[in-house]
Simulated scan of single mutants.
Amino acid sequence: MGRRRAAASVGLILPTLMVMGVVLVAASWWPLPGVYGREAGTLRSVSATVVESAPCGSSTAGDLLEMTVDGEKVRARYDGCGHSRGRQLRVRIPADPAGKFTALPAGSGEGNSGADLRTRLSWVLVTLAGVAGGGYSLMLRRWIFDRPSA
């Protein structure tokens, strides 16, 4: 009788783990912008010069950058701090930089979806391994403690 109950619990745990794995992988791919060309071109890369350096610490707005965009000098805050004045940086800005915006480091944001995808998949695999390990320990616990004594 104990073996039937153990087989029934395994029959419920394994499909549950498989469904959870599929859901986790689907969730990791779903909200990622920039994969397969979606929303491509929303950011463009330009060269900028640090005009005002902001100290790194709590509640700093970031360094002030100056860049030439479509023949016009534009100033924007940088998503970073502590760069020396006059330093040249490669940054990503909106394709249409109208209004106030924040410049991003060149290797970040939607333009770097490959690294974002690798990071997400790594977290999904770690989570899936934890769930599978938990399910396996439940199966072992039941197998060990539900065995009839000889």
Rank of each mutant, 00 (worst) to 15 (best):
M1N: 10
G2M: 05
G2K: 08
R4N: 14
R5M: 14
A6E: 09
A6T: 08
A6M: 11
A6C: 07
A7V: 12
S9H: 06
S9W: 04
S9V: 09
S9P: 00
V10G: 04
G11V: 00
L12K: 10
I13F: 01
I13P: 04
L14H: 04
L14Y: 05
T16L: 15
T16K: 01
T16Q: 09
L17W: 08
L17R: 03
L17P: 00
L17D: 08
V19F: 06
G21C: 09
V23N: 02
L24Q: 05
A26W: 04
A26C: 05
A27F: 04
W29P: 02
W30L: 11
P31Q: 01
G34N: 04
V35P: 01
V35D: 03
G37N: 01
R38Q: 06
R38K: 09
R38S: 09
A40H: 08
G41M: 07
G41I: 12
T42I: 07
T42S: 09
L43G: 00
L43R: 01
L43F: 03
S45H: 06
S47H: 11
A48C: 05
V50N: 05
V50G: 03
V50M: 00
V51S: 04
V51C: 06
S53M: 08
A54D: 09
A54S: 13
A54F: 01
P55H: 08
C56I: 12
G57A: 11
S59C: 08
T60V: 07
A61S: 14
A61G: 12
A61Y: 10
D63M: 06
T68S: 15
T68W: 09
D70T: 14
G71K: 11
K73L: 13
V74R: 13
V74M: 08
V74K: 10
R75P: 13
A76V: 07
R77S: 13
R77W: 12
C81N: 14
C81H: 07
G82M: 10
S84G: 14
G86F: 13
R87S: 14
R87K: 15
R90F: 03
R90M: 14
V91Y: 05
V91S: 07
P94H: 05
P94V: 02
A95W: 10
A98F: 09
A98M: 10
G99F: 05
K100D: 14
F101C: 07
F101E: 04
F101L: 08
T102N: 12
T102K: 14
A103R: 03
L104H: 09
A106G: 08
A106W: 14
A106C: 08
A106E: 11
S108Q: 12
S108H: 07
G109N: 12
G111M: 06
G114D: 13
G114Y: 10
D116V: 11
D116L: 15
R118L: 15
T119S: 12
T119L: 13
L121R: 08
S122Q: 11
L128Q: 13
L128I: 06
A129R: 00
V131T: 06
A132I: 00
A132P: 00
G134D: 02
G135V: 00
G135C: 03
G135T: 04
Y136S: 00
Y136Q: 05
L138M: 04
M139G: 03
M139F: 10
R141M: 07
R141N: 07
R141C: 06
W143R: 08
I144C: 02
I144M: 03
R147Y: 09
S149A: 03
S149R: 02
S149E: 03
A150Q: 00
A150P: 04
